[in-house]
Write a protein that binds this DNA or RNA. Structure first.
Lengths: 337, 337
DNA sequence: TTGTAAGCGTTATCAT
DNA sequence: ATGATAACGCTTACAA
């Protein structure tokens, strides 16, 4: 059980009595090999348990291997998991392998993963940037022809392909839905204001208010970047003198927190629309109305953009927006007070 | 913006007027380089944007690179995402990079990923096997000293390290909890009977019944491998002549489905214990009592087992069981009809 | 149809 | 402290 050297092409060649090049021909399916030689080579490969060394091959062939690096902020978040699934599915037919790493939402983690991936000479890079990261350093990479696509959030300090949800329009729709059901005091509970998605969704919120001629009241805006904070935020909002009658929760953690908070306060009659769907949304009481994103489609679009670049598409950087969808289930249709 | 050749050690060396070997020394922090030379090399590296090529390095150094391959059945399942997060966190200090690929719960997907990873000469392999896969072919790999660890489900046809939840004991605890609250007609809704986790949890269910002297009734056992099936199963169980007064849902999909089914039937007074926690378990009405797994700990244990092997641990294959935890929230304490 | 020589980017070994 | 040379496992280009 000690470390046995792995069989190489030369080992196989020696076994058969040919040259490594002949084995290489068999492995790569070149047709200039006699049927008999091919058979003997295949037998020897089987016997020795030969597995071609992709690293050596790629080094010789093009310095780039067939791996795509994906950096996400958090492996445990099903949103990113589903995005990754969409990417994988779209790349599989092409024989591309996905390497996923998690930045833990830190610029340092992202930087370190980037450099690991680059040292590994990935074919392309897919990045969901951490909140505070900067992407100037990737400019040089772009110069070498490495396709880079950003997902969910755009890069800072770099122009490149990007796939995002229709955050602003989606939020506008969700808030307009609440307005259509008679609400005028609508709270916004979102992520940290530095985050791209929070800013976009906030704009959508203001768009909807403006369209309806409802004055903006900054006291109705709260930050709740995790469940606890969101639950606390909703408690504050409802305790105020001129309280909100409806809440727009701008991400899934916020939505979960608001649901929790309302349940504890026994205030389930407060209207609520969440951004991003939740697995149990349907079973809640009331069932949760949401603006659903399409993480799978985001991944698919990013993979397609990337493969087009690999195929030589040299057009200028594109930004693809994936539409959202309002799913009406109950909580968003509750009337005011 | 066309394909620019990437700077190599020789390029840097030429720029400085030294040999590639000297640059290599600087890159690897060997101390036999004069301070002045080192400074000039570092400057040249910066200027040319040099990034060492890990593939070439690994090829020369040991044929193995510092990548660990992980195969999971489904990227979108947060259980596996969290497992992956636990692995990554445990490996990061050691500079190991995780490559994740999804088998889509098929033997073929698993086989193809395995061979990709092997061709890539990963340092080690982590596998959550697909339901119907076989692992004889990995025997040869084990022979070459490649550490292989299975997670969540044991291998078939191969003896190797393995990390699983305490499925049987956890299920026993959950069912005993229902019994302690007066139930004697307890339904079991689980995955497909071929799945290891289903079989183990089913054993735990029977253990609990046996301990309490409750006769086993096979009519109370249903298969619900997705939400819809589980919802249908619970409807059948409650419509029977001597209906169940409590349900043990042996995985998260089954639990979600049962919650859904009970809600639709307006039968939320039926007691329920789920296996595996759900994000919104606390907000359901009634809140969901579960036997929680610890996916992060599963990942961590697997990574540690693996790193011990990399450090030369040659002891025989171990199976690590990660304990589960009963979280009491309400649904499991409801009394019988 | 098969072989030879050279080289991908790096490092081990032995010199200097 | 630095360099020359060979080698890792494979493929390209050319030759036989």
């Amino acid at each position: 059980m000690s470390k046995v050297r792995r069989a190489t092409m030369s080992d196989v060649a020696r076994e058969v009595g040919v040259t490594a090049k002949t084995v290489s021909r068999v492995v790569n399916g070149e047709n200039s090999v006699s049927a008999e030689t091919r058979a003997r080579v295949l037998a020897a490969m089987e016997k020795l348990g030969f597995q071609p060394n992709l690293m050596a091959r790629n080094m010789r062939v093009g310095a780039r291997d067939s791996t795509v690096g994906l950096i996400i902020p958090d492996m445990g978040n099903p949103f990113f998991g589903t995005v990754a699934g969409g990417i994988e599915a779209a790349m599989r037919p092409r024989g591309l392998t996905l390497i996923v790493g998690s930045s833990e939402e830190t610029a340092e983690g992202e930087r370190s993963l980037t450099s690991t991936f680059l040292a590994r000479r990935v074919t392309a890079l897919l990045v969901v940037p951490a909140a505070d990261s900067d992407h100037h350093s990737l400019r040089a990479e772009r110069g070498t022809g490495l396709p880079i696509v950003f997902l969910d959030r755009p890069p800072s300090g770099l122009t490149t392909d990007c796939v995002v949800s229709a955050n602003r329009e989606g939020a506008r729709t969700g808030v307009a839905h609440l307005i259509a059901h008679g609400h005028r005091r609508i709270a916004f509970i979102g992520d940290l204001p530095t985050l791209y998605t929070r800013r976009e969704r906030f704009q959508g919120y203001r768009d909807a208010l403006a369209e309806a001629g409802i004055p903006f009241d900054r006291r109705l805006v709260e930050t709740g970047h995790d469940e606890k904070a969101a639950a606390a935020a909703v408690a504050r909002l409802l305790a105020a003198k001129d309280p909100a009658t409806a809440v727009f929760a701008a991400n899934n953690f916020a939505a979960t927190g608001v649901v929790l908070g309302l349940a504890r306060l026994r205030r389930q009659e407060v209207a609520l629309v969440g951004f991003d769907d939740l697995p149990l949304a349907e079973v809640l009481e009331p069932a949760l109305t949401v603006v659903a994103q399409d993480p799978e489609a985001i991944g698919k679009a990013a993979a397609e953009l990337l493969m087009a670049r690999l195929d030589g598409d040299r057009s200028r950087a594109r930004t693809v927006e994936i539409p959202t969808r309002l799913i009406v289930r109950g909580s968003g249709e509750l009337p005011p007070g």
